[in-house]
């Protein structure tokens, strides 16, 4: 079942990433673009995990962990910049 599920899941997450990219390009508001970027980071983590399961290596998990942390910090930095016009006050 895994052999069947993994390609299907990779396709689903790829399509999800394209849909998110459409929202990132289209907007229309700044909040939409921040949501889209945040979602793309989470989708990228899902892709890394799926590729790791497909290839049987676990070398991608450091990248997944780093993405999880940096993606959150990036989202908060964008929000702070729009709210205050500054990031570190």
């Amino acid at each position: 079942m895994i052999a069947l599920a993994l390609p299907l899941a990779l396709g689903c997450v790829g399509v999800a990433m394209l849909l998110t990219l459409w929202r990132l390009v289209r907007g229309p508001s700044l909040a939409d673009r921040i949501v889209a970027l945040d979602t793309m980071v989470v989708d990228a983590i899902a892709l890394i995990v799926l590729i790791g399961m497909t290839s049987g290596t676990d070398s991608g998990f450091e990248a997944a962990l780093l993405l999880a942390m940096v993606g959150f910090v990036g989202t908060v930095a964008y929000c702070k910049f729009i709210l205050r016009g500054d990031i570190v006050e």
């Binding site: 895994i2 997450v13 979602t39």
Partner: peptide, 29 residues
């Protein structure tokens, strides 16, 4: 494992579809 992978991928797809489909920012969030 196969079921968990399918459920996970389905939820990820539904999340992004909602981001495209829903009408306003608060709902898209």
């Amino acid at each position: 494992v196969g079921l968990l992978v399918l459920i996970g991928a389905g939820f990820v797809l539904v999340g992004s579809w909602g981001l495209v489909r829903l009408p306003s920012v608060m709902e898209r969030l």
